[in-house]
Amino acid sequence: MNVFRLLGDLSHLASIIILLHKIQTTRSCRGISFKTQALYVAVFVARYPDLLFRFISFYNSIMKLIFIASSCYILYLMRYRFRPTHDPSIDTFRVEYLIGPCFVLGLIFNYGFNMTEVFWSFSIFLESVAILPQLFMLQRTGEAETITTHYLAALGIYRALYIPNWIYRYFTEDGVVDPIAVTAGIVQTGLYLDFFYVYFTKVLQGEKFELPA
């Protein structure tokens, strides 16, 4: 564990808390892509079955349980509690175009041809693009509530912080490198660059998040 990874994980945790806070206080999931949230459930369920047979640390297990439980809870809130506030007509990204190719990538690139490793790889690839339905929705509506942009920023910062973590680990842990996670992580962070630009130049200056028409 190093400071980059810890701050990254905490940023991930913060993003979930911000999203829950937004849904509960506005009593609405307006502006949130159900598809992206469903993809995160798929990511965690595909990646964390190792909870059952591999113990890494107390921290690791607790975080995994939190991520699985909170992502399922968010889906429940969107699907049942606040269902009328979700507009499927703007959440139209075709997720099958993400799931299929990611699964094929998982079959090709993995650290062992077995269920656990293939699903692990699949989850890494899927996580890297899971934000696309959300960004697509943002692009369509052209604006976002400020709290929603804080959620997205925390989520983007989480993956961005994993990059210095990998560099740090490479130098401190005898050249250790995880090419699948690193490649997918760089792609994932890259997807946020446009968003980050608007977030840091507008939202953090007190302006509303609006994309140029």
């Binding site: 990874r5 591999r54 890494i56 690791n60 650290y111 062992g112 077995n114 996670a181």
Partner: peptide
């Protein structure tokens, strides 16, 4: 079998 990479990250 031992995975090449230890999946110790989240």
């Amino acid at each position: 079998d031992n995975p090449v990479v230890q999946h110790d990250e989240l």
